[in-house]
Design a protein around this nucleic acid. Structure first.
Length: 783
RNA sequence: GCCGCGGUGGCGGAAUAGGCAGACGCGCAGGUCUCAAAAACCUGUGAUGCUCAAACAUCGUGUGGGUUCGAUUCCCACCCGCGGCACCA
C-alpha cells in the first residue's frame, strides 16, 4: 500500500530539482554535436491559462526534445510569450487594470502550468514581446525595413466601428459586425504604415517547394499569394485622350468583351463621367464606401453597378463598349478595371443579365498563349503577373503593442516636401510605451492622450522641436515574425541576435503549432526572414525547415471546447487527478498529432491504469530469467526501441505508446524483470513520462538524472526473425497459415501449405492454375 | 461557389511500395478478490449463420463501378462530414 503510485508526491519536487540543477539549460559549446532547434509557436498568455490544446503541441515538442538530447544532439528548446495584444487591452477597458499587470500575471500562470507538465524549456532564454528589451528590437526591425524601403506610409481603408469610435483589427470584425458591440463596421480611409511584403510575393511562392511543411499549409500560402498570369491591355476611352488599362487572364476572349467595369475608387472615374451622370455616380460611390466588409467580401451575392455614360474602344476589334462602375471590381487587384466577357465569365454574365448588357457568344480562334503573343506583337497589350497578396498593414490604433518608432517633423516636412517622417535614432530605442493613458475608446490611439509620450521629442534629423511621435502601435504579428531569432541570443544588448548565435542555432528545425496560423504568421515570418537575409543578417532565407500542426482537442461531447457548452477540460484538474505524466501520455495517445480529436474522460483512465501498472512492475525488478525467455524478451524490447526511434522523429506518438503497452504486457507476464531490461525500458519511456521514470530511476539508487541517459543502442540482430508465419490463400481467400523458416525455398513452402487440412479441403477436386509466392509474405493458389 | 482534408467495430484509433482488417486503449459482458462496493487482476468482445461451445462458412473499411490471384490501400463516378478562401477579372 505504501508503494502506491502517487504522482503528486514527487512531481513538484522533481520540477524544482531539475530547475536547480539547470538540467534543461541549453548546451552552449558542444562543437562535436549536431544542433537541433525545436520550437513551439509563441503562445498568447491569456487570463484563462494554458489549455489542453497548448499542451498537446508542447508535449509533442517536449518528447521530441528529450529524445533528441538522448540521441546526442544539442537541443535548443525555448519558450516565450506573444504578450502584446487585444484581450489584455479590452480587459483593461472593462476593468481598469493595466495590461502590463494582467499580462505578467498570466505569464506567471502559464509558466507554472508548463513547469507542472514537466516541459523541458530553457527558462534562461524566456522572452516576452511586451518587455522593453524585446520590443526595442521589434522597433529596430521596423526601422530596418523603413531604411530598406520596405516600410512606407499610405492611405488605406480600415475597419471602423462607429459606436465604439475605434479602428478594429480584422480579427475583431465578425461577419461584418464589431465583435464587442455588434454594430456594423464601416470602411474608413486613414494614413497607415505598411510593410512591402508584395515585393517578396514570387519568392515566398517559389521557396515553398523547399520546405518540409504539410501540403495543405503550403497550398494555403500559395492561394493567399494568389499568383495569376495574364495581360494588361489598354482600352482607349472614346472621344478622349485617356486610356484605361485592364488586367485579364483570358486575353483569348477579348473579342467577346462587351462592356468594361471600373472599381468605384478608380482614379479615372471622376474624369470620364458625363455631367448628367455625376450625381448618380457620386451617390453610388458613397453607398459603396459605407458598405460593410461583409458586403464587400462577396457574401452578398447581388451585384450593383452604375453606367458612366462613357465608352471605351476594344483595341482588338475597335468596337465601342460602355464603361460601367461596380463595386465587385476591386481597386486593390490588377488595375482596378476589367474588360467584361459575359460569354466566358459567370460574374460578367450575371452583371450583364442584371443590367441588360450585350452578350456576345464568340468562337475562340486562338489559344490563350497564341492570343497573348498576337496582342504583344500588335502592341495592344503586355504580359503581366498579378498577386492577390497585399502589403501588410502594421499600424494599430491601439495601446498594448510596440510603439512605431517614427517621428513626424514639421520642419523637415516643410523643407523637403514629403519627407516629414524620420526614424527614431537607434540610440534612442526603445520608444517606451507610456503608462499614463486612458484605455477608453475615443477614435484615436490611446497613446495620443499620454502627457509624457511627446515630451522633449525632437526631430532625429534636423533637431527641430516641431516634432511629434507616431502614436500608433504595431500589429502584434510583427512581434511574432522574428522572435525565433531572439531565442538564439536573448540577452544581446547590441543586436537582435549575434551572427554567431544565429549561425549556431538557426533555422528552426521543427516548428509545431496550430493550423490557424497557416497563412498570416507563417507568411510574415518568412517575409521578415527573407528581408533580413537580403541585407546580410542571416545565412538562410527560410525560418522553419519542418513544420507540423497539432489538431484541435474537442470536448468530451465532440464539440469545440467552450464556456457555452460547459465542456472545457482544464489541464490543472486533470493533473490533480492523474498527475502530469498521465496527461502527457494521454494527449499523445488520443490519436495522430495533426488530427482533431475529442477528449475522453474515461480514455485518460486507461493511460493512468497503464502507468500504475508500470509503477507496480518496479517491485519485480532484480532477478534473472531463463535463457530462452530472456532472449524472447530482448527481441520484443529491441523491436520496441526500433519502433520508437523511427516513430518519434515523425511524431507518431500514439502508436509508440501502444508499442510500449505491448512491451509492458510482455515483461509483466514473467515473475521477475531483469535490471537491464527495466533500465532500458525506463529510458525509452522517460521522454514521455519524465516524472515517473525519474522517480523510479532514483529509487533504484541512481544519482544522476535519467534524463541524462543516452538512448539505448539498438541491437539489429535481435530484430531478425528465424521463422515466419505465411498466410495461404486460395483465390484471394485466406484458408490457413504455414510457419516456415524465413529463408525457405518456394517449393518447400508450397509443399508445406498443401499439407494444411483446410487448404487441402478447399483444393479438393480443383485444378491449380497458378501459384504465387511472395518471399516471406504470402502464398496464393489460383484455381 | 472554389480549394484542401477526411469517412474503418458501441467509441478514440491501428494497418496502405496492394498481401492474415480491427494493433493499443475505452466501453461492454462474464469471472477472481470482497459482507458489499470501489480498486486491481483474468477471460471474452465486428456482424450473421450453423437451435450451447468448438470448428466452419458467409458478409464486412461511406455508396456504386473498375483494375488484380488478392483492394481499407490504386483508378473512375457519386454521397456525407470537417476546415480554409471568398466577386482576385
Amino acid at each position: 500500500m505504501e508503494n502506491e503510485y502517487k504522482p503528486a508526491s514527487f512531481e513538484a519536487a522533481w520540477t524544482k530539482k531539475w530547475a536547480q540543477q539547470g538540467l534543461y539549460s541549453t548546451p552552449e559549446q558542444v562543437a562535436d554535436k549536431p544542433k537541433v532547434y525545436i520550437l513551439d509557436m509563441f503562445p498568447y498568455p491569456s487570463g484563462a491559462g494554458l489549455h489542453v490544446g497548448h499542451i498537446e503541441g508542447e508535449t509533442a515538442t517536449d518528447i521530441l526534445s528529450r529524445f533528441m538530447r538522448m540521441r546526442g544532439y544539442r537541443v535548443l528548446h525555448p519558450m516565450g510569450w506573444d504578450s502584446f495584444g487585444l484581450p489584455a487591452e479590452n480587459f483593461a477597458i472593462k476593468s481598469g487594470v493595466h495590461p502590463h499587470e494582467t499580462t505578467e500575471k498570466a505569464i506567471k500562470t502559464f509558466k507554472q502550468q508548463m513547469d507542472r507538465m514537466g516541459f523541458s524549456y530553457d527558462w534562461d532564454r524566456e522572452l516576452g514581446a511586451h518587455r522593453e528589451d524585446y520590443y526595442r528590437w521589434t522597433q529596430w526591425l521596423f526601422i530596418f525595413l523603413y531604411n530598406k524601403g520596405l516600410a512606407y506610409r499610405a492611405k488605406a481603408p480600415v475597419n471602423w466601428c462607429p459606436s465604439c469610435q475605434t479602428v478594429l483589427a480584422n480579427e475583431q470584425v465578425e461577419e461584418g459586425m464589431c465583435e464587442r458591440c455588434g454594430t456594423e463596421v464601416i470602411q474608413k480611409e486613414m494614413e497607415q504604415w505598411f510593410f512591402k511584403i508584395t515585393d517578396y510575393a514570387q519568392r515566398l511562392l517559389d521557396d515553398l517547394q523547399k520546405l518540409d511543411w504539410p501540403e495543405s499549409t503550403k497550398l494555403g500560402q500559395k492561394n493567399w499569394i494568389g499568383r495569376s498570369e495574364g495581360m494588361i491591355i489598354p482600352f482607349a476611352v472614346a472621344d478622349s485622350k485617356d486610356t484605361i488599362e485592364v488586367f485579364t487572364t483570358r486575353p483569348d476572349t477579348i473579342f467577346g468583351a462587351t462592356y468594361m467595369v471600373l472599381a468605384p475608387e478608380h482614379p479615372l472615374v471622376s474624369k470620364i463621367i458625363t455631367d448628367e451622370q455625376k450625381e448618380e455616380i457620386q451617390r453610388y460611390q458613397q453607398t459603396t464606401a459605407h458598405k460593410s466588409s461583409l458586403q464587400r467580401s462577396g457574401l452578398e451575392k447581388q451585384k450593383s453597378g452604375v453606367f458612366t455614360g462613357a465608352s471605351a474602344i476594344n483595341p482588338a476589334n475597335n468596337q465601342k463598349i460602355p464603361i460601367w462602375i461596380a463595386d465587385h471590381v476591386l481597386m486593390t487587384y490588377g488595375t482596378g478595371a476589367i474588360m467584361a466577357v459575359p460569354a466566358y465569365d459567370e460574374r460578367d454574365m450575371q452583371f450583364a443579365k442584371q443590367y441588360d448588357l450585350p452578350i456576345e457568344k464568340i468562337e475562340l480562334t486562338k489559344s490563350k498563349e497564341e492570343m497573348t503573343e498576337w496582342l504583344v506583337q500588335k502592341r495592344m497589350g503586355k504580359k503581366s503577373v498579378q498577386y492577390k497578396l497585399r502589403d501588410w498593414l502594421v499600424s494599430r490604433q491601439r495601446y498594448w503593442g510596440a510603439p512605431i518608432p517614427m517621428i513626424f517633423c514639421e520642419q523637415c516636412a516643410r523643407s523637403t516636401g514629403l519627407q516629414g517622417w524620420q526614424p527614431v535614432a537607434d540610440t534612442d530605442l526603445p520608444v517606451t510605451l507610456p503608462t499614463d493613458v486612458d484605455f477608453k475608446p475615443t477614435g484615436e490611439s490611446p497613446i495620443a492622450y499620454s502627457k509624457t509620450f511627446q515630451k522633449g521629442v525632437v526631430c532625429p534629423k534636423c533637431g527641430s522641436v516641431e516634432a511629434r511621435r507616431e502614436v500608433d502601435t504595431m500589429d502584434t504579428f510583427v512581434d511574432s515574425s522574428w522572435y525565433y531569432f531572439r531565442f538564439a541570443d536573448p540577452h544581446n544588448q547590441s543586436a537582435f541576435a549575434s551572427k554567431e548565435a544565429l549561425k549556431k542555432w538557426l533555422p528552426v528545425d521543427t516548428y509545431v503549432g496550430g493550423a490557424e496560423h497557416t497563412v498570416l504568421h507563417l507568411l510574415y515570418a518568412r517575409f521578415i526572414t527573407k528581408a533580413l537575409y537580403d541585407a546580410g543578417y542571416l545565412a538562410f532565407d527560410e525560418p522553419f525547415t519542418q513544420l507540423r500542426h497539432q489538431g484541435i482537442v474537442m470536448g468530451p461531447d465532440h464539440r469545440r471546447m467552450s464556456k457555452r457548452w460547459g465542456n472545457i477540460i482544464n489541464p490543472d484538474d486533470e493533473v490533480d487527478k492523474y498527475g502530469a505524466d498521465t496527461v502527457r501520455l494521454y494527449e499523445m495517445f488520443m490519436g495522430p498529432l495533426k488530427d482533431t480529436k475529442a477528449w475522453n474522460t474515461e480514455g485518460i483512465q486507461g493511460i493512468y491504469r497503464f502507468l500504475k501498472r508500470v509503477w507496480k512492475l518496479a517491485e519485480k525488478v532484480g532477478g534473472t530469467l531463463p535463457a530462452d525467455v530472456h532472449q524472447e524478451q530482448q527481441k520484443i524490447l529491441h523491436k520496441t526501441i526500433s519502433y520508437a526511434q523511427e516513430a518519434i522523429p515523425k511524431m507518431m506518438f500514439n502508436t509508440t505508446v501502444s508499442k510500449y503497452m505491448e512491451l509492458v504486457h510482455s515483461i509483466a507476464k514473467e515473475d521477475t524483470i531483469e535490471v537491464d531490461t527495466w533500465n532500458t525500458f525506463l529510458t525509452i519511456l522517460a521522454p514521455f513520462a519524465p516524472f515517473m521514470t525519474e522517480e523510479l530511476w532514483a529509487r533504484q539508487g541512481h544519482a544522476e538524472s535519467i534524463h541524462k541517459n543516452t538512448w539505448p543502442r539498438l541491437q539489429k540482430k535481435l530484430l531478425e526473425e528465424s521463422t515466419v508465419t505465411i498466410p495461404v490463400q486460395i483465390n484471394g481467400k485466406i484458408r490457413g497459415t504455414v510457419t516456415v523458416s524465413a529463408q525457405e525455398e518456394e517449393q518447400e513452402v508450397i509443399t508445406a501449405a498443401l499439407q494444411v487440412p483446410l487448404v487441402k479441403k478447399h483444393l479438393e477436386g480443383k485444378q491449380i492454375v497458378k501459384t504465387i509466392y511472395i518471399q516471406g509474405k504470402i502464398l496464393t493458389f489460383v484455381v
